[in-house]
Nucleic acid binder design. Structure first.
Lengths: 345, 345
DNA sequence: AATCGCTTGAGGTGCGTTACTCATTTCTGG
DNA sequence: CCAGAAATGAGTAACGCACCTCAAGCGATT
């Protein structure tokens, strides 16, 4: 079962190798009828160009840049680590990944970083940044300069980014809402929300999804107004203590953003962990432990490894002009209970 | 930023190309000290062989066989379809996938199919089959003949298969148990189980996981004895009708295996769908609809597309002697509520 | 000193493309 | 029918590596 090569296509179509090459690579100077003959031969023989040979001859390389927020955020650190790890195994496939830490809350710096990128330095960019209008504009300009851009974790739907790698945060919020609604008894009870900031699109989406489900399907639950803790453990800790003091009958808690560690500490100090249904996001050593000991009841997560690998695959496909395997690139909303925690890597 | 090639390694180490080649490919006839010199140069220069060039020169090809149960099982059909789809996009990377439908309940035929396979016909095999001892033996012999084997969906832990691609069914069962326990009110209630057959390892595992969690953490729930429906819609339909008649106060239902369609029909005919907490496995058009209209309350699933792609990646890596990216190949237990159903492809 | 075995160097070929160049043939309009 | 343009053929270098052969260098053994 020899491979079908351009030679076979050429002889089948009764033309020379040069002509086959012209057709296959869209070079000019071939009559319509000849093009058709060659394409017919390609179909008949089921010819597929050999990726190894093509890659070698094309001298292709994929220089990718990842812009990832710095700061003491376990999830972002996981993203960076996974990107580094995966890049190491992909070096031999000519994929080089440069990780650029950015200050996500400084839109000006982010756009500056995007502005200096260029086709001569990189072929694709994956960026995780809050959706400020100026960032959107910078993404558009970068695309215009011929660099492929995908958004990661947090989308910029209005931009011309070619793809979004991340979860549907509205759906994630709905899941949180339903879990709260079904985990709690069918009787009036109070639920508290803590977010990093409702100015962040993903936090706002989650909040909207959650309240939508609860309002529609669990109207007996009373929703306290959202407190914003800037994803900071210290702030969240204080917020939680105050909440627990103000509402001794608090039944549920949904942390929309990061900073679970502060909340966990507060619940455990006050021994309110077991009685309260507490749902949060992202799997970290702290949330894992809290799930195991019962302080947390469910975790809604996205797999940073999956996201990074998906972003790299998508960018590579964009560079090659190859199609994207949709099913492969859909990032699922992971729901963890204490029963299905993955083993530690 | 030119690529580092063997030429660079050779001159750095002060040896010839031939020697570098001998070292890199483990050919004999090189002194220890020379080997060390070359390896030091490889490390210093951070040399990685070019996958494109190597693949081309090696004339590598990956002939993979997938043995997948036939019959009217939506999940198995999804597996086959995904394998075909992914194989199409991988043809140019010299991966060819042959899908062999098997009668999973006829162990003799399965072993026969495995027995005729050989290094001359295929490089790797992915097999989904119930764990009969003779199948295990056939897998071992196939491995001995130099063909890499991975088990898919259903594991044969005692065999010498190189890898298992699938979920932890014990954990899946525990998830079902916890969801039942938390979705139902904290008061005595009856729960029914339906399985295909407890002789199937995955069904037995799920059952064990589920009862373990309920016995330990939700002892107020009464577990009715398991009914076996052979994963057949018709049988399951009858079983459900009988169950509902015998237990007008039935509160929960867990379908451990396939055949959800029959159960859904029974629940909807008798209008018991809404009042009952019903949990099952695998996402199909029927379970999707049931989740949306409230007949089902949660779905525990595994992504067949992910599994197939993982199996192919793993087999390819085994053929290349390359390392496996653990995180990438871990198959998660998907939990679907009506809120996080993926869009239809 | 001749011999043997081990180690190393030098060099070539093929893998299937891409991306050229330069002839040569075929077609078209005037 | 012929100039000029368009289409095609023929061939080549390069990509980086795997795999092979042949010869030369070296030290130790007899």
């Amino acid at each position: 079962m020899r491979r079908v090569t351009i030679h076979d296509v050429a002889s089948k179509a009764g033309v020379s190798l040069a002509t086959v090459d012209r057709v296959l690579n869209g070079r000019p100077g071939v009559r319509k009828v000849t093009i058709d003959r060659v394409q017919a031969a390609v179909r008949d023989l089921n010819y597929e160009p050999d990726a190894f040979a093509a890659g070698l001859a094309k001298r292709r390389s994929y220089r990718l840049h990842f812009l990832i927020p710095n700061g003491p955020n376990a999830f972002m650190e996981d993203l960076s680590r996974e990107a580094r790890d995966f890049a190491a195994t992909l070096m031999r496939e000519r994929v080089s990944v440069h990780i650029e830490p950015i200050d996500a809350f400084d839109a000006h710096r982010v756009t500056g970083t995007l502005a200096i990128l260029d086709k001569s330095v990189c072929d694709g960019v994956a960026v995780v940044a809050p959706s400020f209008p100026e960032v959107r504009a910078a993404i558009d300009r970068l695309q215009d300069r011929g660099v492929h851009v995908v958004t990661l974790v947090s989308d910029h739907p209005a931009s011309s980014r070619r793809h979004f790698v991340g979860i549907d945060n509205m759906a994630a919020g709905r899941v949180a809402g339903r879990l709260l609604g079904r985990f709690l008894p069918k009787e009036p009870a109070k639920i508290a929300f803590i977010a990093g900031s409702l100015g962040l699109r993903d936090h706002a989406d989650r909040y909207a999804g959650c309240t939508q489900v609860i309002d529609n399907e669990f109207p007996h639950l009373e929703l306290l107004k959202v407190r914003e803790g800037r994803d900071d453990n210290g702030k969240n800790h204080d917020i939680a203590l105050k909440l627990l003091a103000e509402h001794p009958d608090l039944a549920g808690l949904y942390n929309i953003g990061a900073g679970n560690r502060g909340l966990i500490a507060a619940l455990e100090e006050t021994r309110r962990g077991a009685g309260l249904t507490f749902i949060g996001h992202e799997l970290t050593p702290y949330t894992r432990a809290a799930l195991q000991n019962g302080t947390m009841d469910a975790l809604i997560a996205q797999d940073p490894g999956h996201e990074v690998r998906s972003a790299i695959r998508v960018l590579k496909a964009l560079c090659d002009g190859a199609p994207i395997v949709e099913g492969q690139e859909r990032i699922g909303i992971d729901i963890f209970l204490k029963d299905n925690l993955p083993d530690l890597a």
